[in-house]
């Protein structure tokens, strides 16, 4: 398991290529990359605040729960904080398993929990001002799937 909380950019392709390099027991890798989206066409930047004392351990606990539920060969979570421009990668999740079902499901689980249980808060800065992104009820309800 690797969990990285960082301000700097990451190369999702390079991360994915290195993820299970050299292993021969892995039959499936699933990855998700979250990118700063400019919905209204006026986004200057996305500011991501986090709780430094809690973030790393909260994500590690979520990954441990995924490892408990599915037979994973490995898991990777990278999540950025700070001021990010539209089009920049925010975070990525990768899961590896012998078979695809576990890799798909664990990645989906990790995304649902990272969205609502990892201590990050997004603020959109546009030409018209700055607003905190409100949590969606659908995101909270998504946890009930698991």
């Amino acid at each position: 398991m690797a969990v990285r909380v960082q301000e700097g950019a990451f190369d999702a392709g390079a991360e994915l290529n290195g993820f299970v390099q050299g292993r021969t027991d892995v039959g499936a890798v699933v990855s998700f990359t979250g990118i700063v989206r400019d919905t209204a066409g006026n986004l200057l930047e996305m500011q991501i605040e986090h709780y430094p004392g809690m973030t790393q351990s909260a994500i590690e606990k979520i990954v441990q729960e995924a490892q408990h539920r599915w037979d994973l060969s490995d898991a990777l979570v990278i999540h950025r904080y700070g001021a990010l421009k539209p089009g920049a990668p925010i975070m990525m999740v990768a899961t590896a398993a012998a078979h695809r079902a576990a890799a798909f499901e664990a990645a989906d689980f990790l995304m649902d929990y990272l969205k609502s249980r990892a201590p990050f808060w997004k603020k959109e800065v546009t030409g018209a001002g700055a607003d905190w992104v409100a949590a969606k009820e659908a995101d909270e309800n998504a946890l009930n799937r698991w």
Partner: peptide, 12 residues
């Protein structure tokens, strides 16, 4: 020792 208050999280 430490109490933190915050809105619902919006990670991912």
């Amino acid at each position: 020792r430490e109490v933190a208050f915050f809105p619902p999280m919006t990670g991912g």
